[in-house]
Structure formats: C-alpha cells, structure tokens
C-alpha cells in the first residue's frame, strides 16, 4: 500500500515537522515501504482472532487516590526553552484553548 506525497505532507504538518522537498521524497518512500511491510498481515486469515485493544492481557491496574509530592517548580521548568520564575513561556497563543 503506497502513501501519497500529499498524505505525508499533511501528517508532517500535524506532527509539526518541517520537511524539505527532498526529505518529503525520502519519507514518502520510507513510509510506503513500512506500510507495505505491515500490509503482509492482511494475507493472514484473522476471522477467528478476537480483536484486541491492548497488547498486554492485563486489565484493571489502579493506584489509590493519594497525593504525592510534586516536582520542585525550578526543576519542572528547567528544561523549557523559555520560562520565567513561575511559568513556561511560549509564543503568543491566540484564542482560547
């Protein structure tokens, strides 16, 4: 199954990846190869296989509703490209999230 250049362009936009024309070309070919490989699975007869929502056969893993210590603010902000004493700083967000 091939993927079109336009589809790759759209996906890269959604992933906020800026690809050059050459990169777009490479990615289209590589993603096409990956999809083609996965497509091999469709040759199997899966009629009698239950669809699964998760790779692990485990369910109901919970934690108790207990508050635990949070990160120190300085530590939490440390890796951000831009921050002040209290907040992360980002280019202006217009409208409402």
């Amino acid at each position: 199954m091939a993927i079109s250049r336009e589809e790759v362009k759209k996906v890269s936009l959604l992933a906020r990846l800026q690809l050059s024309d050459a990169e777009l070309e490479t990615m289209t070919a590589q993603l096409g190869d990956i999809l083609g490989y996965v497509e091999l699975l469709s040759e199997l007869d899966t009629d009698k296989v239950e669809p699964m929502a998760h790779a692990l056969d485990v369910s109901n893993v919970f934690r108790d509703d207990k508050v635990r210590a949070s990160l120190d603010r300085g530590e939490a902000l440390a890796n951000a490209p831009k921050h002040d004493d209290e907040c992360y700083r980002v280019p202006a967000v217009l409208g409402d999230g």
Binding site: D65, K66, R68, S70, L71
Partner: peptide, 24 residues
C-alpha cells in the same frame, strides 16, 4: 472530586502557585 490527578499523584487543589503541582 479526587485528591490527586487522573494518572499521577499530583494534587488537584485549586489556586496553588503556578507549576507547583506537576511531575514527570
């Protein structure tokens, strides 16, 4: 009305100083 967040132990209390209730 839980005391801690949905997937971690940070407090859900309202009105705390910004970015003091976060974790990895």
């Amino acid at each position: 009305s839980t005391a801690s967040k949905l997937f971690c132990g940070c407090s859900t209390a309202f009105g705390s100083p910004a970015n003091t209730q976060t974790c990895p």
